[in-house]
């Protein structure tokens, strides 16, 4: 489908601890997952930071809306973000 812009796509999985991200959109075919993320505050414009990673680098804990959310990298890759340096 949309092939352009692949290189520019930055996802939550790319976020580094020293950066702050802003949610752009959730791109997934899985409606249940999308709805779930939306109700947890993963909506466009929301600020997000990376708190820490599990021993093997996956899953990771993100901080958004003042709470900690654990997500696997596979899921984080479906969440597009914009990176703003802290």
């Amino acid at each position: 489908m949309k092939q352009y812009g692949q290189i520019d796509k930055v996802t939550l999985a790319d976020l580094r601890p020293d950066q702050q991200g802003e949610i752009v959109k959730i791109e997934t075919e899985d409606g249940v997952f999308k709805r779930r993320m939306q109700s947890l505050g993963v909506v466009s414009g929301a600020a997000v930071t990376l708190d820490r990673s599990a021993p093997l680098g996956d899953p990771r804990i993100y901080s958004l809306m003042g709470y900690s959310l654990g997500l696997r990298n596979a899921e984080a890759r479906q969440i597009h973000i914009r990176i703003c340096i802290k």
């Binding site: 899953p59 804990i61 900690s68 959310l69 654990g70 997500l71 696997r72 596979a74």
Partner: peptide, 15 residues
């Protein structure tokens, strides 16, 4: 392997 079907959950957990 035995049980038909596939797919698991996303790990989504509020700490």
């Amino acid at each position: 392997r035995i049980i038909p079907g596939s797919g698991g959950d996303a790990f989504v957990m509020e700490l």
